[in-house]
Amino acid sequence: MGSRFTGRVALITGAGTGIGAATARLVVAEGGKVVLTGRRPAPLAEVAGPLGDAALALPADAADGAAMAAVVAEATERLGRIDVVVANAGGHGLGTAAETTDEGWQLALDANLTSAFVTIRAALPGLVDGGGSVVLVSSLAGLFAGPAVAGYTATKHALIGLSRSIARDYGKHGVRSNVVCPGWVRTAMADEQMDRFGESRGLSRDDAYALLTENTPLGRPADAEEVASVIAFLASSDASIVSGAIVTADAGASAVDLPTIELA
């Protein structure tokens, strides 16, 4: 592996599974240290264990401003700095607008938008001092609308606005901010969705993934490691001139003109 993160520290939310865990492993493999946060201690410990002294697990609710301020303070005290924030925590927001309760709407806001905002806000003083980088993990739902996911769609769209605001306001301090929009990715959360969808159609998990990605140009879902590679690029000096960008990691799905699918 390379050494793009030697001497650098990345704070990753939602780090216990999926894209967050894969990103942590990649950063460490390339010489960096990671601060892993999420609400469940056990998955964080499972990810941190093999990474040894290069990983610091600090369980917290990423949507709790005070908790994330404490995480940033402890991480800075113990590791000396935070150079990168990967705002990866997310979830919730199922249902149409009419079906979404006030509680459901707030859950979507907290999980997808507030979690990113309060984490980045807490880390910004250190990022400004060191000319750091922010990567927010949105979704194709940040660009388009799927069926019956009003809260998820609205909050994933909002992450793009947050990233652009950070890029605009803090670029003069050397801080970069970018967004990754994955399509279907093989993660524990997506596996659960595939299992539910597959059960309704009499399909296995693999067949469900295949059906839902058959009209993408690459015709398959991503692995978490593939999305982690995109995040690592944006977070590293390889992307030193990239800020305010939206990078899709969607097997080409966003390049498809839906009304022409039947012509293929």
Rank of each mutant, 00 (worst) to 15 (best):
95 G>N: 09
257 D>C: 10
197 F>T: 04
221 P>N: 04
205 R>W: 05
174 G>R: 01
62 A>I: 05
124 L>N: 14
254 S>M: 12
167 A>W: 08
29 A>S: 15
211 L>F: 12
198 G>M: 01
5 F>T: 08
70 A>T: 00
104 G>I: 12
82 I>F: 09
191 D>L: 06
13 T>G: 04
189 M>L: 10
145 A>Y: 12
130 G>N: 11
27 V>E: 08
111 A>R: 07
14 G>C: 06
242 V>Y: 00
2 G>M: 14
50 P>V: 03
55 A>G: 01
175 V>T: 08
119 T>Q: 06
74 E>M: 00
72 V>A: 12
201 R>S: 03
237 S>K: 12
207 D>L: 05
234 L>K: 07
12 I>W: 06
18 G>F: 09
195 D>H: 09
108 A>H: 10
108 A>F: 06
92 H>D: 13
223 D>A: 14
126 G>T: 01
209 Y>H: 01
204 S>I: 10
76 T>S: 14
53 D>G: 12
114 T>H: 03
13 T>C: 01
207 D>Q: 08
26 L>D: 12
201 R>M: 14
43 P>D: 03
14 G>Q: 10
207 D>M: 02
2 G>F: 13
138 S>V: 07
88 N>Q: 10
7 G>A: 09
80 G>V: 08
217 P>T: 07
96 T>H: 07
97 A>T: 13
142 G>T: 09
118 V>N: 04
164 R>I: 08
184 W>M: 12
238 D>R: 13
17 T>S: 15
134 V>D: 04
183 G>W: 01
251 A>S: 15
185 V>N: 08
85 V>L: 08
